[in-house]
């Protein structure tokens, strides 16, 4: 174990460079975030992830954000186990009817100010499961969505871009366009 630990100490980091926040996301967020966000947020946000019927591939990529390559915590973004500790609900999936109540409860348990980010085509209403007796079709049909990050699943770097845009907005809100 010692060798591996030492090697890890002396090798260069494998972490990717920070991507620039996504332009579209910035514009989209202009509508959603108020000036007070900076005061409330500082430079850190805490995320509670909720799978509302995903195929689980979106989760795999969200998971990847925490590995050494994307290392999301260096930006002050971290994941929390409880919605009580969260600023942001990151929701995946088309919102199955069987998950609707749990999702609403997670939202209710999240203290304001709070933001909803819909991750993946399913959550954004353009996935393959939207037209089913068992789904609502999008996160927007259950909760007010502030930001959409599309992709099936979005790559971790796209997730990072979207979330950084959310942070930028919190620090320096652009006026709505």
């Amino acid at each position: 174990m010692r060798t591996l630990l030492l090697q890890s100490l002396f090798t260069r980091p494998v972490t990717v460079d920070a991507p620039s926040p996504e332009e579209i996301a910035l514009v989209e967020l202009g509508n959603a975030l108020k000036e007070q966000a900076q005061r409330l947020f500082g430079r850190s946000i805490t995320i509670r992830e909720v799978d509302a019927g995903s195929c689980n591939a979106c989760e795999l990529e969200i998971h990847a954000l925490s590995n050494a390559v994307y290392d999301i915590e260096r930006f002050g973004i971290k994941f929390a186990a409880s919605p009580r500790h969260a600023d942001v609900l990151l929701v995946t999936g088309p919102v199955t009817k069987n998950m609707k109540i749990a999702l609403e409860r997670a939202y209710a348990a999240t203290p304001a100010p709070k933001w909803i980010v819909a991750v993946g085509d399913c959550a954004c209403g353009c996935g393959v499961f939207s037209q089913s007796y068992a789904t609502l079709g999008s996160v927007q049909s259950a909760l007010p969505v502030d930001l959409q990050i599309r992709g099936c699943p979005p790559r971790p770097i796209d997730l990072l871009r979207g979330l950084l845009a959310l942070m930028e907005q919190a620090v320096d809100p652009k006026p709505a366009t």
Binding site: D51, C55, N98, F129, S132, T135
Partner: peptide
């Protein structure tokens, strides 16, 4: 909890469309 109605979604698809559902 994550029942999406996949068997129902597959019924009536053309073969390539169905492949997109199966992949998920």
């Amino acid at each position: 909890y994550v029942h999406k109605g996949i068997d129902g979604l597959l019924a009536g698809c053309d073969i390539d469309q169905g492949a997109r559902v199966a992949a998920r």
